[in-house]
């Protein structure tokens, strides 16, 4: 059940990012920052995503070990 939930969450996040990419005709402030300044913010977004992913993995591991300790 939890696995399905997390997969669903991942899907929602992914669809959200594609939705942001789909808005090309009107330039939002978000788009402007992402495209300005040599597009360095794109790199930051990628790096932050990796970091957050690793942190989520660490937190999951932490929780799992806590459960192991209880039994």
């Amino acid at each position: 059940m939890r696995k399905i939930k997390s997969l669903l969450l991942l899907f929602i996040v992914l669809s959200f990012t594609t939705a942001v990419q789909a808005q090309t005709n009107e330039v939002s402030a978000f788009e402007q920052t992402m495209r300005g300044n040599g597009r360095i913010y794109v790199v930051i977004a990628v790096m932050t995503t990796i970091l957050v992913g690793l942190f989520l993995y660490l937190i999951r591991l932490d929780r799992k070990i806590s459960k192991l300790e209880k039994n």
């Binding site: 360095i40 790199v43 930051i44 932050t48 942190f55």
Partner: peptide, 16 residues
């Protein structure tokens, strides 16, 4: 652990 996450996110964003 929360402090660690916040500090490293700050490092990655502000560092660049």
């Amino acid at each position: 652990k929360i402090l660690c996450i916040v500090l490293l996110l700050f490092t990655f964003i502000k560092g660049l």
